[in-house]
Write a protein that binds this DNA or RNA. Structure first.
Lengths: 200, 200, 200, 200
DNA sequence: TATGAATGAGGATTCATTCAT
DNA sequence: GATGAATGAATCCTCATTCAT
């Protein structure tokens, strides 16, 4: 007797509630500071249910880090590195990225934790690392494109791409409480500078 | 019976060994993943000794975060925001900062953890935050100085200062394994761009 | 709506599969080491079904111990304690018993567990104990019979009967892996000695 | 600062109390039915102390099975398989073994559990098995010796030795409650029969 | 001050049992 | 009857902290 539509739906909702609670808690209290009991309470789910959906705490953490990555990755890579006008594309990209980052406060904390303790969270770290490489690579191509067209000054494009990621991450970490939106335009403009635009 | 010179020295050495071990462990395994036993073993110190030097785990963490801050702060603030030639000073400053950051891999992990979980580590976070404000403020003054002298393009100097910190932090986080030194010069040059130098 | 023939048959088959799986698991992994999930998987039956057939784990264990007892008892008592020729009867009996025991490896493990932990498994233990008494009694009568006919040397017949049971049990326990059949004839002969046959 | 004599003594006592409580509980309630809490209470020791002395439950079980083996083994092997008069030696041995077994009620339950679930308790089982082999081998030599001297009838000596062990184990299991001592002499005499003594 | 055994509260995990479908 | 998700009590184990030596 297979599960009914309704049951499957309920389960999906439940699973999502757990993941959301876990994301928040892992981010704000760390892996060790997060207990399954806290998660179950925050998700308004029974204690045992957490284990119905996730084998153990580690799998829960892994899922919380890796599962959003696909969607996040898609958003972050949504720019055209071969654009006719690389400078415009760059501006659009930056604005977009800042917007994306402004919405993933907790997730980013998780990511940073995972990176910092990559020995401990090896598997999920590898996924993150793979994405990071892909992302930097693509940004780097766009930068080269801009440089060849004489729109950006010559710099090591991979380094610049890395600095750009660094900036995105670091800025989000630095701005825990403040509202991004108020200043995002200014931020975007200043950020563009990192790429050394020749005519703005 | 007062302690002999030698004893006092031994105790200082021991305390330092504990702090070093704790820094490494807190950074790589997190607060929850770090146990006093691990610390004592990594420091080649008896289990009980850790409690001789630190009241409890929390105090150990606090110390590990806050104690290096004084020295770190001094190094980070060692630039002249009223320099005659702000652009040169900026270059000098960046190079210096990158060098400093290259040496504090583990400590920075700690800092990021502390910031991310500032609810949990309130006291130490406040110290970090205070330093951050001071630092940004001073950088911001230097930037304004440069702008007034027409050497830097006009931007919101506080935002730029924040981005600069973000970049320093983010870049260090991103470069877990690679050797900074190999690329630090290029990084410094690209980083300068953030400040919008008009003539380089 | 009464159940169809087929349904009733299916249920009997299912029940039996569960009992067989449970016998094996209780025997090899102990009561505590056996979980309902394992049983359901080994019986290729759904998790919930185990509870359809057995109220709880305890009832399952009880059934697994007690239900085979009736049949086992019948087989074990299938000898004539008033036989004309007690020595021949004894030989026949021993051979038969050894054969029976050779086929009940797992069940015997269960029995021994039950006996060893009789406090815990009081109810089933009582059934086992009752059978044991009956069995020893009947063997003892046969032995006395033989002694009176001058075919067996005088010994305490109940003690001998107890030793005989002990030997059957002990030998089965000792021979986990080896094939009984290869040596069963020799074993039977040597076992006979316990009864002190005067002319063999 | 090494532990004082007194402390070391206390620890030995504590360790022994735990082992005794564990032996009793494992024997009467099984591995799964025995909880660390029960053990600690029965040993009048704090819960945590059990883990100070034994890494985990499994190690506790292992120790409880294997540690007494050395002493037990020594006692059980204390007979001369090359004795001038094998029959006398056999009698002495049997009496001695019955006495030994009369004192190890709980331990034997443990052993039987270990054997029955040898898959689960592989390591300790191997130790038991090794002893069993040695024991049977030595008994077998004594039997052969007796047979060559015409004091015992010809039988497969290894099978007889196995039957003998079986009987010792089986009898102990069968006699949970009764006092051995009352009947041990009769038991010894009847047991001797297994070896087929020609003149008694 | 140094040491490491003692303690028990707290946390992860398991699992028998219930129950809605 | 059949199924398997939901539940939380019970269990193993860890570990910060205490304290006797």
């Amino acid at each position: 007797m297979p599960l009914s539509e309704q049951q499957i739906l309920n389960m999906k909702v439940k699973r999502k509630k757990i993941l959301e609670a876990a994301t928040y808690l892992f981010a704000t209290e760390g892996y060790g500071g997060t207990t399954i009991k806290k998660v179950s309470e925050a998700a308004t789910v029974s204690f045992g249910s957490v284990f119905t959906y996730f084998k153990d705490k580690e799998e829960l953490f892994y899922t919380v880090v890796v599962e959003p990555l696909e969607d996040f990755s898609k958003q972050m890579l949504a720019f055209d590195e071969h654009a006719e006008n690389p400078l415009d594309e760059l501006k659009r990209m930056i604005t977009n990225h800042i917007k994306i980052f402004s919405e993933i406060n907790h997730y980013l904390q998780l990511v940073v934790q995972d990176i910092g303790q990559h020995e401990r969270f090896r598997e999920s770290f590898e996924k993150l690392d793979a994405f990071h490489d892909e992302f930097r690579g693509k940004v780097s191509v766009l930068v080269k494109n801009g440089q060849q067209k004489g729109l950006l000054e010559k710099q090591d494009s991979l380094i610049v791409a890395t600095l750009y990621t660094s900036l995105l991450i670091g800025f989000r970490l630095n701005s825990t409480d403040k509202r991004y939106s108020d200043i995002s335009e200014k931020v975007a403009l200043s950020t563009l500078n990192i790429f050394g635009p020749i005519i703005k």
